[in-house]
């Protein structure tokens, strides 16, 4: 399937989407964080698209907003798409957990939580995975994080 096919198909599923990089090898979609879980479920269950493989879940700090980027692949058609969900609240960022739809997201969400402070609603165990259990110095992967040992260019 070409990017245009995917775009046309996806547009029938949901309306509030922004598309970009349509001529690249990967279609980028931005979706509101409130409809994200529904949207991903639809993408997974749709017979024609079947984006069933969560390739990567990336926490993001866009400067103003925080966000999560999901890369989904269809094991049938082998198309990769990128889905971005932005969260505007930096103090108490919340987004729906998708680990029920994609079990692969479980540990990735824990990673995004501890490095970006993004709370995944519905995730049963958002404990520290990489950082020490008593870590309280903030969220290291955010752009505004500073540390005395950090090399700044």
């Amino acid at each position: 399937m070409t990017n245009t096919d995917i775009k046309n198909k996806i547009e029938t599923l949901q309306s509030d989407l922004t598309f970009s990089q349509e001529d690249g090898d990967m279609l980028c979609i931005e979706v509101s964080k409130d409809t994200l879980k529904d949207f991903l479920t639809k993408l997974k269950n749709d017979a024609d698209l079947s984006f069933d493989y969560l390739f990567a879940l990336t926490g993001m700090d866009f400067g103003e907003d925080l966000g999560v980027i999901y890369h989904l692949e269809s094991t049938k058609h082998r198309n990769l798409i990128q889905i971005t969900a932005k969260i505007s609240d930096r103090e108490n960022p919340e987004i729906d957990s998708i680990h029920e739809v994609f079990p692969a997201a479980y540990y990735n969400e824990m990673e995004a939580h501890e490095f970006f402070g993004i709370k995944f609603k519905g995730h049963p165990d958002l404990k520290h995975l990489f950082l020490p259990e008593d870590w309280d110095k903030g969220f290291p992967m955010r752009k505004d994080y500073t540390d005395v040992n950090m090399l700044v260019r």
């Binding site: 970009s20 990089q21 690249g24 990967m26 980028c28 390739f55 990567a56 990336t58 993001m60 980027i69 890369h71 990769l80 990128q82």
Partner: peptide, 20 residues
Amino acid sequence: AGSFVQRVESARGDFGVFAY
């Protein structure tokens, strides 16, 4: 500006690099 993904098959599997 944009998002780029490159995947290779490493000895352990699907190694991916994502650059924003």
